[in-house]
Write a protein that binds this DNA or RNA. Structure first.
Lengths: 209, 209
DNA sequence: ACTTGTGAAGCATTTCACAGCC
DNA sequence: GGCTGTGAAATGCTTCACAAGT
């Protein structure tokens, strides 16, 4: 699962926050930034920031800090968003349509290159500049479209079948919005986003009635 | 932040997975289930399952396992989903509309009781059985509507202002879909869902080009 | 004087392994 | 025989604190 066994998933997650913070900074082009400033912007301790960077060799100058533009490049390369990552969305319901229309992906290096559904009333319609294709065509299109990540936005009962088609087409990673555990070849990385789960976890912290 | 300092956030997250697994089981009404079976269904070790349960006193019988219906009740009570939790959604764009239409919330104890937006062209329209209200009315409506959780589905630039209104109205928790760190009174629990961040974390595990 | 990078210490979480119960 | 509940060991993660660089 992990590309580099000494780097924890929590570290990767924070790297993404650092990148977000640094990108906000970059507009102002201040030139240099310290680990404590990055920590403040990201809600993390300065020591944690430096430790996280150190797993990748460290890219600051003692007494000075980190060059904002270099830091942004380093983080983008580590997170593989220094190149375009191409994604397909399967399941053009409310959620799939919302994802297709979301401008935030393009802004951060992700490009939607295909929409798929199995519903004949949806196949053929155009959304956010893409014609919705039959999901049966998906396996054959992953490679020509150079897809690296597939997003699953179908109901729980069809999610595994969609995942199988993605794996058959050789996507490298899957972002799964359906509330089920997918079974995939172990070299395929899966991440789940389950809004109901997040609500349940929030509810735990609610005061007693 | 934590209700019970000896229970980690990761444990709460797993409890929600256990509940999901047990609910799938409950349909079949097998009567009893073992920690290893729950673990298999949830992708967790059997020892971890038992340890997690033990934080709440343990509710199994040695040699037998866990009564499925009792387990479901225990988990639901711990996660506070044994009672209805009432939520409002602010921001009726693509995402907010998708959330409002999602049937999975109601099925698992969450009830949407209000939709809000600041856009005059949206205020007044009806969606999933709810009339969209002006977000300015939100603070005054949290208590009468008995809202415990507020969901923020507005653009990043307006998310903090919405959070402030929620806090003013005294919601207990916020689910934030905007890619910004919210500043709130520290007794308000915030969880962030950032799809772009999930994509970035996935991209990290992608094979080199 | 200020900041990075990093071993070492401190803390948290997970796994182990087994006593006790059905 | 099989399963739970739980201290103890093992592992993993974060914070500390300081040498070294600017």
């Amino acid at each position: 699962m992990r590309r580099n066994p000494q780097v924890a998933e929590a570290t990767v997650y924070r790297l993404s926050r650092y990148l977000q913070s640094v990108q906000r900074l970059d507009a102002d082009a201040v030139g240099t930034v310290s680990s404590s400033e990055i920590g403040r912007l990201s809600g993390v301790s300065a020591a944690q920031v430096r430790k996280d960077f150190s797993y990748f060799g460290g890219f600051g100058r003692p007494g000075v800090g980190y060059s904002i533009s270099e830091l942004r490049q380093h983080l983008a390369r580590i997170l593989r968003v220094d190149r375009e990552q191409r994604i397909v969305i399967v399941g053009i319901g409310h959620l799939g349509a919302a994802l297709a229309a979301y401008p935030g992906f393009q802004q951060r290096g992700f490009r939607i290159v295909g929409l798929f559904d199995s519903d004949p009333t949806k196949i053929g319609i155009t959304l956010a500049g893409h014609r919705v294709r039959d999901v049966e065509e998906l396996p054959a299109l992953v490679e020509p479209l150079k897809v690296s990540i597939g997003a699953i936005a179908v109901p729980a009962r069809s999610a595994q079948a969609v995942a199988d088609k993605m794996v058959a087409g050789k996507v490298a990673a899957i972002l799964n919005f359906a509330p089920v555990m997918l079974e995939v070849r172990e070299d395929v990385v899966v991440k789940n986003v389950d809004v109901t789960r997040e609500l349940e976890c929030l509810a735990y912290y609610l005061p007693a009635p």
